[in-house]
């Protein structure tokens, strides 16, 4: 996958381990996660709640708080390893070259500061520009994400915006300094579908036009199908399957991915009960030994007592971590 078009990937994560050292024990929120994102491409990071998606995002932003810490691996941003980088270096990158959009738009804007204050500070944190110029750019950014009468809206406080509008504002803030990489943590989950569609469209356009790479964290496979170029499926802190969107969604190999796709309602399943994955995500504090998914997996057997290694089932760039993948999918002609 690396070097598919010869360029350096915007982000290359290798064997990332982010652990939380709590009193109850070590929580391996992210364990040996590797992926990379090329300029202008969108990686969909999919998984259930508590699978480590958000912590992966925060790790890339250098925003993992105590008692969490990056315990191993590399986060290479345009070739520069950021693991162990100084706080000053992080501060230079954050919001400037790497931006993040948070999940809950109701919580991401400071309730007591005006929108202009919150936008201008994001520009002035990285560039020595006048307030007027920063304001001008903020206004343009609001216009870009489709906020009507941006001049007036700049003077408003967050509570005067609806949830969708607030998320647009935080997207506008993420775009302010034209970052090379955007980590979007379920940015459309709290929004209604029409706004979601608009934002997805804008995001896609942005990546195409500016070459911004994007990591789109979500649990919504339909969003991934429409937006992402590649998809990585996370389960209990590990990547279990990784490949291009077409491959993974059409021919899921891992039983977990299989289950996820099976549980998406669609027209041709009308009237039939939805398949579901039995059980719940295991607590990261006491993961079962071996494959973490074995307690819920219909294919689990004795072999699953040992943790599966990463394999390349089709010999290409697809990656898989399973003893009993649905290899029959590879043989089938996609419907």
């Amino acid at each position: 996958m690396a070097g598919s078009n010869g360029s350096v990937p915007t982000l290359d994560v290798e064997n990332l381990q982010t652990y939380f050292f709590t009193k109850a024990g070590v929580v391996k929120a992210v364990d040996e996660v590797s992926f990379s994102v090329q300029p202008g491409k969108v990686l969909g990071l999919v998984g259930e709640s508590g699978s480590g998606k958000t912590v992966t995002g925060f790790s890339i932003m250098g925003l993992v708080d105590e008692p969490g810490r990056i315990a191993g691996g590399h986060i290479k941003f345009r070739g520069e390893d950021l693991v162990g980088a100084s706080e000053d270096r992080w501060q230079q990158l954050r919001g400037n070259q790497i931006a993040m959009i948070f999940q809950d738009p109701m919580m991401t804007l400071n309730p007591v500061l005006r929108i202009d204050t919150q936008m201008i500070e994001a520009i002035q944190a990285h560039e020595n520009v006048s307030r007027d110029e920063a304001r001008q750019r903020s206004r343009d950014a609001l216009g870009q994400v489709g906020i009507p009468s941006p001049d007036e809206r700049l003077k408003a406080y967050p509570h005067q915006f609806s949830g969708g509008m607030r998320q647009r504002v935080s997207i506008a803030i993420a775009l302010l300094n034209k970052p090379d990489l955007i980590v979007a943590d379920e940015p459309t989950t709290a929004l209604d579908v029409t706004i979601q569609a608009q934002i997805l469209y804008e995001a896609q356009k942005l990546c195409k036009e500016t070459g911004t790479a994007m990591i789109w964290i979500t649990h919504d496979l339909t969003v991934v199908a429409g937006l992402a170029d590649e998809v990585a499926v996370m389960y209990a802190g590990r990547l279990v399957e990784h490949g291009s969107v077409d491959d993974v969604l059409d021919k899921p190999l891992h039983p977990y991915t299989h289950g996820l796709i099976g549980s998406v309602p669609s027209r041709n399943k009308r009237g039939k009960p939805l398949e579901q994955i039995p059980g719940m995500t295991p607590s990261l504090l006491n993961l079962p030994p071996g494959c973490a998914f074995k307690t819920r997996c219909p294919r689990a057997d004795a072999a699953c007592e040992t943790a599966p290694d990463v394999t390349k089932p089709d010999g290409g760039h697809r990656l898989l971590r399973c003893h009993h993948p649905h290899l029959d999918e590879l043989a089938e002609v996609p419907a």
């Binding site: 925003l63 948070f102 919580m107 991401t108 400071n110 309730p111 919150q118």
Partner: peptide, 10 residues
Amino acid sequence: DYIKFARAKG
């Protein structure tokens, strides 16, 4: 979250 977001802005 808004403090973390402010940090994410640099």
